[in-house]
Design a protein around this nucleic acid. Structure first.
Lengths: 178, 178
DNA sequence: GATGAAACGTTATATAATCACACGGAAGAC
DNA sequence: GTCTTCCGTGTGATTATATAACGTTTCATC
């Protein structure tokens, strides 16, 4: 599921599926790629064409894309078209914090704060499927307390909120006028 | 993945894969079933044999089981053996809060606090795959603040911590003695 | 240039989830 | 009681998501 290769989900023109707030999208793609490039040079990582393309594809959305949607686009661009091509690139990008996996959707999204150390949290709109990234500090709250109490060592956290984004909430109230 | 039908994961005898703390397991299965029964009567829900069996299967573990592992056991017990049988029962149980889905694992676990209203959080051991349920209040922390700031309406949250449970942590330190 | 490690391309396969349709039994209407 | 309707079940088929395995290429290093 997640978001099919075009069709159905054209909402407001697809150019700016928005991460809730408006922003210069072209810039944010360019910046994302530049940040990734810098990051990879610093750490002697190979930012290969496939990896770069996958990140670029993801930066063009503020929604999560399934691996097979990504794969479709790779194919269009002349890259290998078998699942492992996409999955390997995604594995690399996720491992280095440039992309996050949205477990709830079995899908992937470009990191909004590359470079910064962070425990990301996501807000997923069930209506338009857009996803916004926020910070979380799960280890500070009830979960952290439970972990300390039982002796569980937290290495990684998944925090995903599902609900309705402000844009869709507006739309709904307007659509039921009478 | 998750936990195959026996093999490989026999760890400490499989009778008590533990939810970190020791407890009387038979009792906790019986209580879980009883609680579910009560709950279904109260709400006029049909606690059918398949649904009961699936819950019982899950209560016997403190790990998350994949839908197909559950299906295998249903087959052994003479129930239908096609995926929809398991998925429909799981859908019902999840909808009514008797079972939770662990998104990280694409697997399911019996609720540890049926009846109580709760936003569950999970601690998943990457070594033994056991899962413990805790409470969370994600809307109170950084995530909640971000949601309020942007106008996102949270309806449901997924909070899952991956790490190492105390039992496995002990085991590791002991295995590297010299 | 030779060498070893990491990426890639491809085939095949495993795992997870849903669709569509037929059947049967329980609950409410009469 | 009987009819009707709805819900749950059983089954076959299909769609989605993800990984295994293997040979080849590319790159960094010597």
């Amino acid at each position: 599921m997640t978001s099919e290769s075009s069709s159905s989900n054209d909402l407001e023109g697809a150019t700016t599926p928005v991460g809730f707030a408006h922003h210069d999208h072209d810039t944010c793609v360019a910046e994302g790629l530049a940040a990734a490039e810098t990051r990879c040079e610093e750490d002697s990582l190979r930012f290969t064409p496939v990896r770069r393309k996958v990140l670029e594809i993801l930066l063009q959305e503020h929604r999560a894309l399934g691996a097979y949607s990504i794969l479709d686009r790779l194919r269009e661009e002349g890259f290998g078209s078998q699942p492992p091509v996409a999955y390997r690139a995604l594995e690399f990008l996720v491992a280095h914090g440039l992309v996050h996996k949205i477990e709830r959707l079995n899908a992937f999204i470009a990191c909004a704060h590359p470079g910064e150390k962070h425990a990301p949290a996501f807000m997923i709109c069930r209506m338009c499927e857009c996803v916004a990234e926020a910070q979380s500090a799960p280890a500070r709250g009830a979960l952290g307390a439970a972990a300390r109490a039982t002796g569980f060592r937290i290495e990684r956290t998944v925090v995903e909120a599902e609900g309705v984004c402000p844009t869709c909430a507006d739309k709904v109230t307007k659509e039921v006028p009478a």
